[in-house]
């Protein structure tokens, strides 16, 4: 283990390009799902990665775990170059970094009892065998708040929340240090979401885990993330400590996202920034700032259309990719009320 100040995970200029074969009459156009992304995660830190569909957030999570091969760039996990490992070393690295998927039903084998699903990695990595393995499964079930009597159930016999707890127990079975949580509560009912979010917060504390929490909703990661990264069309728009993201967003896209989340309080219905248009076709991204066609900033100009803004640090730990970062969009009424609390 290296010194405490070094980041646990360092992502350097990561790019993932999908080459489509193109149609019969159209030229193949590559799709950059993740476009030159760099960041670091400190040990014990929890990062919220927020973006809409097509932003590349899921691909980024999978690239880091090398479930998808990157086109270029590097991922360094605790001094290990993840992309430079042979099959054996990669497999042992898998013990240290794990993933929880969005769809707990799809990510569990329907023909495998949930106890066996949690036990499988324990057997594969020879962590325990026989009764010890069974005891480990029982402990994991208890830790994630599942009745151990469910061990012999099939996934379809459990509720959505219970299935997601199985998914979490399975990820924890190899005792990882780092977890990618890919929209772990998006498929769950509101009343169950909170249970799972609290469980994840508890586990992080108890096991000193490091999280990359992927979400499409800024509200969900609010109470779990130390830092928030906002992604759009494969690029980072903003990366800043959570407190400042929610109260003083620097990027107009962040402001728009915050504004778009419906607030469950009829007294605080505010003027919204409603973004016009759709997310552009990622095969034909806009020139300059990828957000410029939808950007609500009143001062956007020619530069936004022609020059790609670099992600730069405009204040301590606050990074933004916007030419107009010096004059961020003000938050409209109602949104800032969180700051007062």
């Amino acid at each position: 283990m290296s010194d405490a100040t070094a980041p646990l995970l360092s992502v350097q200029r990561l790019v993932k390009e999908y080459r489509s074969s193109g149609g019969l009459f159209s030229r193949p156009s590559p799709l950059r799902a993740v476009n030159d992304v760099s960041f670091e995660i400190a040990r014990g830190e929890s990062i919220g990665l927020v973006g809409e569909s097509g932003s590349g957030k899921t691909t980024l999570g999978r690239l880091i775990l090398r479930l998808v091969e990157a086109t270029s760039g590097r991922v360094i996990f605790d001094d290990v170059d993840v992309f430079n490992l042979d099959t054996r070393s990669l497999r042992s690295l898998r013990r240290r970094m794990q993933i929880v998927f969005q769809d707990p039903f799809g990510s569990l084998n329907p023909r495998m009892r949930v106890g066996a699903a949690v036990r499988e990695p324990i057997a594969v990595h020879r962590i325990a065998r026989g009764n010890d393995a069974t005891a480990a499964v029982v402990r994991l079930f208890q830790e994630v708040g599942l009745d151990p009597s469910y061990i012999d159930r099939y996934p379809h016999e459990l509720s959505g929340g219970q299935r997601q707890r199985v998914g979490i127990a399975r990820a924890l079975s190899v005792e990882p240090e780092f977890l990618v949580l890919d929209e772990p509560v998006s498929a769950l009912d509101v009343s169950v979401q909170a249970q799972v979010l609290n469980l994840l917060a508890d586990l992080r504390e108890r096991r000193n885990l490091t999280y990359l929490f992927i979400a499409h909703d800024l509200a969900v990661v609010r109470h779990i993330a130390h830092r928030i990264v906002v992604m759009y069309l494969g690029r980072f728009m903003e990366m800043a400590p959570a407190a400042s993201t929610y109260t003083e967003p620097l990027h107009p896209y962040t402001s728009s996202l915050l504004s778009a989340v419906p607030v469950p309080d009829p007294r605080e219905q505010r003027e919204r920034i409603v973004l016009q248009g759709d997310m552009p076709d990622p095969r034909k991204p806009p020139t300059g700032c990828v957000f410029h066609p939808r950007c609500p900033h009143p001062k956007k100009d020619q530069r936004c259309r022609s020059e790609v803004p670099m992600l730069r640090e405009v204040a301590e730990n606050r990074w933004v990719a916007c030419h107009l970062a010096a004059e961020p969009l003000p938050l409209l009424s109602g949104q800032a009320s969180g700051a007062a609390n």
């Binding site: 042992s92 794990q98 998927f101 569990l108």
Partner: peptide
């Protein structure tokens, strides 16, 4: 299916 990805992410080998 995602459970295949899950198995790979857990380091399960091809045979298994």
């Amino acid at each position: 299916r995602e459970y295949m990805l899950a198995a790979r992410s857990l380091g399960v080998g091809h045979g298994r």
